[in-house]
Design a protein around this nucleic acid. Structure first.
Lengths: 340, 340
DNA sequence: ACTGGCACTCTGTCGCCGGGAGTGCCAGGC
DNA sequence: GCCTGGCACTCCCGGCGACAGAGTGCCAGT
């Protein structure tokens, strides 16, 4: 059975009211608050159908209706129009991001901005190393047998690692290494570097090969294997908004999930270009997040994508507003990165 | 009126039982669980005195007694003996910290370890720049009028900033700058650098002074003014342990406070050497944290202190165990830093 | 196909009551 | 003088029943 326009309109009204009031919505209140042009009885019939189809449900007999995950899904896919940001919001975004001095600062400001605008938990992934290029590699001698390797990526990320050398190296040795390594790797995408690193070792004169091999292994580890993704979180206090009504009693599982970076990365780190992804309740693959929704998108300079960001909140969330905000923030951050 | 030994013993018993059971403790249960050698009636008299003195209170008439903040304070100061860590805990600490590859990793592992061992919220401050020395300064050309300044501190911290130059600079110019800057600043404590940076500008040949001045101002900003403290948080999910009984109903204010880095820094960043600080409930200067206690201490290689760490939990916490754990972790982290 | 009316069901709240835990006080004993 | 047993009192907490309110499903009528 397909749903006619009015039934969809009723669903939309239910979602909107429920999101706003946090209370099951009944037929009478619905016709009063929206101009549906029909009587409560008619709405009730429509509701019965919507419930049949699984889009809404009653917490108990003779309570109002509440959207199901499927209901929210339908709402997001077909019923919600994008809500344009207010000029005030746009100004807020610009003002907030404009003073950032380095990458850490950008991420930091972004995540707080997102949390504040959406009033939910915000997550921002640092630009992924896997999607970055090497801008420069620096070797800093710490002692005769130890150097610090500093990798600067074009996205602004800086990673450092300590390298234990097999034997002592002079300052000149280090300079030479530095030159060679940069010659070979600077400007390369990180994902392309492994064979280049190998060739570095191969081309090395035998006398120095030990040192180079040592450096190479750490390089590989830093550049690729342990291509660690970092992220930043803000707005956890927003989980307590609306009492403990959302999240079926405890936010325990949610807080636990937020501690797991792996989980968060899976959530916001799937990077289909210029597409905003919405995961609603049960659609989430993590049990702990079954009562939450996640809105995420990729960001990056221009059309390329270097990382993800998003927000997490109760399934009962303002999807149009949240989606609009997430997109807008992602675009601004991308622009900001493009300037560097 | 001074409290005799038995009254103190009663207080100790109350604190211990309450911490364990989370329920007001009555006189009868007390004599049953502890060998006090007197009758409940006697204990009741002692309790009346303890209440008079403000160390315990009754949630309502004819409920058991609960320690007040002052009661916990007395307990911590005079009644609790340090609880030595179990060998298993020591091993856990070592095993957890041993694989750390860089500073980020150390801090990350430490904070999670602390959260796990104490089952509370853990906070670890990155080694403070103000207490670090410059190991090396690197200048990486980004374009002809932009260079990236990377500062590596002896504590392992790496800070980077973008510098906009007033005019174009050649690779040689940059190399020259790099040499000069390092000559002057490497090895210096960050707090000693401002006059040195000034002298760098003064000694510069007039032709390059513009560039150097530009660099110098960013240097100053990076090194001193914006000597930003960073920190890491873990274990917020532990706040939900024990229901919402602690934290008088909502953890909202607590979560809010945890979002404010400034607050957290004040809490764990007061660095009296080798002293563990305990702030109990109302002793806390932040209203939002009135229902929590904070145990914090400094850490660093050897006897010097470069940063703070600690945990935050309900006033009803296992003080002896928590204090012991915080101290032990701080010592291990210090040792780890000393190795670099 | 929609509407008004009506009976029904369920929730949430209030007041009430009794059991239980714990206290404060008092008189008596060591 | 300190400790103890006894006793009356207070208060919380859980269960129970009544009740008002909200919302529904259904049916007959337009």
């Amino acid at each position: 059975m397909s749903l006619d326009d009015r039934k969809l309109e009723v669903l939309r009204a239910i979602v909107e009211d429920y999101v706003e009031t946090q209370e099951p919505v009944g037929s009478k209140a619905l016709v009063e608050r929206h101009q549906l042009g029909v009587s409560p009885a008619t709405v009730r019939n429509d509701m019965a159908v919507l419930e049949e189809e699984g889009y809404i449900r009653q917490p108990h007999t003779s309570a109002g209706r509440v959207p199901t995950d499927a209901g929210y899904r339908l709402f997001v896919d077909r019923l919600s129009k994008v809500k344009p940001l207010s000029p005030a919001e746009r100004r807020a975004i610009e003002r907030f991001l404009i003073g950032a001095v380095d990458l850490d600062d950008v991420v930091h400001r972004t995540v707080r901005l997102l949390a504040q605008l959406t009033r939910q938990v915000a997550v921002v992934q640092y630009p992924s190393l896997a999607r970055s290029s090497v801008r420069h590699l620096e070797l800093v001698p710490i002692s005769t047998t130890r150097i610090m390797l500093v990798m600067i990526a074009d996205t602004g990320r800086v990673e450092q690692r300590l390298v234990e050398l097999p034997g002592p190296a002079t300052a000149d040795d280090v300079m030479e290494l530095r030159r060679k390594v940069n010659e070979k790797l600077a400007g390369q995408r990180l994902s392309d570097t492994p064979p280049l690193v190998q060739s570095l070792v191969d081309e090395c004169p035998p006398g120095r090969r030990g040192t180079m091999a040592c450096l190479a292994s750490v390089l590989l580890e830093t550049l690729v294997e342990r291509s660690e993704e970092r992220l930043m979180l803000a707005g956890t206090a927003n989980l307590t908004r609306g009492g403990v009504l959302d999240f079926q009693g405890t936010l325990r599982p949610v807080l636990e999930a937020l501690e797991e970076e792996v989980i968060l990365l899976k959530l916001i780190g799937d990077l289909e270009p210029s597409k905003t992804r919405v995961r609603i309740g049960d659609e989430n693959e993590f049990d702990n997040l079954r009562s939450t929704s996640v809105v995420s998108t990729g960001y990056g300079p221009g059309a390329t994508i270097v990382g993800g960001l998003g927000v997490l909140g109760p399934t009962r969330m303002d999807y149009p507003g949240t989606i609009a905000t997430v997109r807008a923030v992602a675009r601004y951050v991308g622009d900001l990165l493009a300037q560097n």
